[in-house]
Design a protein around this nucleic acid. Structure first.
Lengths: 175, 175
DNA sequence: GCCAGATATATCTAACAGATAGCACAGGTC
DNA sequence: GACCTGTGCTATCTGTTAGATATATCTGGC
């Protein structure tokens, strides 16, 4: 089985919204897709070069890249492919699994940090949601779907963290 | 900032449970940590060689590697380091974000597939939970923490999927 | 003895993250 | 006007990682 680069989808997707430079694409991906996707320069520039080579994108006079017709078709093709899931790598859970070696206090700190992060995510999502809802474009419902996914995940983390902190306390001080 | 290989933690962690070969370590990581961590052979073997070189592990007569004292110390050190989070890459949400290009039916199929996967995860977690609880070792509470995290995440996915399917239906057939 | 499948060890390629570096241009600040 | 600083922008390099693949060995069934 051939591994496909996922970067192509993100880059073509970004350019489908508006023509932009590689730098701007990275900014857009970070700011708009940031809560569920990320790209690095090291991936973006080679991908842009390759996409230009095969004619899916083209440079405007302003240095910005724009999607060609074949690029638009290509994006639809790639979107229709089944989403390949990235293998899980959760450093927090890896540490908690070996938590006995680490001690309950350190574990509690780890969980508290995750809890704080989830709360920050939630307020960021609230902001994003308001921003997106205000636009009211045909893309809005789909954006809201991804924001909602983030909110559900963050709330799940909060609930898990509280439950886990209770469990850890019981472990240290069993009644 | 220096990037640290996370593989070291997982490999030392696996060997801290019992001495084993590289192959067995991979199996153990997949079966026991599989729902939140993954390693490939391409990572495991070079890591084992390096760990042996610096004396954190040593080969038994049986070809299995075992942790040395310095390896055990090293594991504690690594566990104490803050968990570095991996950048998000969610192929499902990436596709849904550009869902208008894809059409509501295809989006619904994507969400349904995610929903099914979450349900399968939940039943796997139920099985795991029973298995781990039956052991009742000092490590059990920590294992349960990671299983609980998986369950919360899977239930969040279910709730999100149902909500999203409703939203998509309303989009196609607004009353 | 022979085959199939599991066990086991490795290696190679490509995907990817993140650091770094360089350049142009803008806006101060002395 | 010289100098500094920030930022927009285009890269490139290194190390990490995933996953495919090659190749034995060992074991049980036929």
């Amino acid at each position: 089985m051939v591994r496909r680069s996922q970067t192509e989808v993100a880059v073509l997707g970004a350019l489908s919204v508006a023509p932009m430079t590689g730098y701007a694409a990275r900014e857009a991906i970070r700011d708009v897709l940031g809560h569920f996707w990320s790209e690095s320069f090291g991936q973006i520039y080679p991908t842009l070069a390759e996409l230009e080579r095969v004619g899916h994108i083209r440079r405007q006079e302003s240095m910005a890249y724009e999607l060609t017709d074949s690029g638009r078709t290509r994006l639809r093709e790639l979107l229709a492919e089944p989403a390949q899931r990235t293998p899980p790598r959760n450093g927090l859970l890896l540490r908690l699994f070996f938590g006995r070696q680490l001690g309950p206090e350190a574990c509690r700190d780890l969980i508290l940090a995750a809890r704080t992060e989830a709360e920050e995510s939630l307020s960021r999502y609230a902001f994003l949601r308001a921003e997106v809802a205000a636009e009211d474009s045909p893309d809005t419902p789909y954006s809201l779907l991804t924001i909602s996914a983030g909110e559900h995940a963050a709330r799940a983390t909060l609930a898990w963290a509280d439950e886990s902190l209770t469990a850890l306390n019981r472990l240290e001080d069993p009644r």
